[in-house]
């Protein structure tokens, strides 16, 4: 296989990992909000920050692999 193909496989793996992570964050935040709707604001802030950190990691990996 050509190196480009390996890059694409790597990109796919990164996206799978990031997708699982984001799903966990989003799902758990939903559960939290459903249990305690009055804490929605705080949960959302924390959710966005962690999602952003995860996203930074995923984009960093994609960027390095380019």
């Amino acid at each position: 296989m050509e190196p480009v193909t390996y890059n694409l496989i790597g990109a796919g793996l990164i996206v799978i990992g990031a997708g699982i992570g984001l799903g966990q964050i989003g799902g758990k935040a939903m559960e939290g909000i459903a249990r305690q709707p009055e804490a929605t604001g705080k949960i959302q802030t924390a959710m966005i920050i962690i999602a952003a950190l995860l996203e930074g990691l995923a984009f960093g990996a994609l960027f390095l692999g380019k």
């Binding site: 996203e55 930074g56 960027f63």
Partner: peptide
């Protein structure tokens, strides 16, 4: 992470 996130 700040710079790559926005750029990407």
């Amino acid at each position: 992470s700040l710079l790559v996130r926005l750029f990407a």
